[in-house]
C-alpha cells in the first residue's frame, strides 16, 4: 500500500437478508452505481445485530458501520427491527457520548423494493465519512 493513496472510508454493512440485502440486489440488477466502500455482511434480521458487532467493527478499524433492515411493520420476524431500533439507539448514543462522530454509525430502513435508496444510503454515508478521515478512536493499535 502506497502512502499517496487517497483516504477511502472502510464500512462494514450489516444487511438484513429479507429486505436491505435484497434491496442491494435490486440496486445491482438496476445497475445503480455507488461507491465500493461498504462490505456487506448478510444477517437474518437487524434484530440479530448485537451492539457487540458495532463496537467490534470499530475496534477492528471500520471507519463507519451501517445497519440496514426492513421498515417498521415489515419485519419478516415481525418484531426484530423494533428490538434493533432500541438497541441501536442506545449503541449510537453511547458512541456519541464519548465523542465518536455521529456520522460514523448509520442505520437505515431499505426494503427489497428500494434499490435506489440503498445506493443512496451508501453514497451519502461515504460522503459523510470522507471529511472525518480515518477512525482511530476505537481502532486497535497495530503491533509493529
Amino acid at each position: 500500500m502506497s502512502e499517496q493513496q487517497p483516504y477511502e472510508p472502510r464500512i462494514v454493512a450489516f444487511l438484513c437478508k429479507w429486505c436491505s440485502s435484497a434491496g442491494s440486489d435490486l440496486a445491482g440488477v438496476s445497475r445503480i452505481q455507488y461507491p465500493a466502500n461498504a462490505t456487506p455482511i448478510t444477517i437474518p434480521c437487524t434484530g440479530a445485530v448485537s451492539p457487540m458487532y458495532i463496537l467490534s467493527a470499530f475496534n477492528k478499524g471500520a471507519d463507519g458501520v451501517l445497519v440496514s433492515g426492513c421498515h417498521i411493520g415489515d419485519c419478516h420476524y415481525i418484531e426484530g427491527n423494533y428490538l434493533a431500533r432500541r438497541k441501536m439507539h442506545l449503541t449510537m448514543e453511547l458512541l456519541k457520548f464519548i465523542g465518536v462522530e455521529q456520522n460514523r454509525f448509520r442505520m437505515s430502513w431499505v426494503s427489497a423494493a428500494e434499490g435506489a435508496k440503498f445506493a443512496q444510503v451508501v453514497t451519502d454515508f461515504v460522503n459523510d465519512l470522507r471529511p472525518l478521515g480515518p477512525q482511530d478512536k476505537l481502532k486497535k493499535a497495530v503491533r509493529t
Binding site: L26, R31, Q33, Y34, A36
Partner: peptide, 12 residues
C-alpha cells in the same frame, strides 16, 4: 454475492 452487491454496482 460478488455480482449484485459488487460487480454490477461498481465500475472501478
Amino acid at each position: 454475492n460478488i455480482r449484485e452487491q459488487c460487480s454490477w454496482v461498481h465500475n472501478d
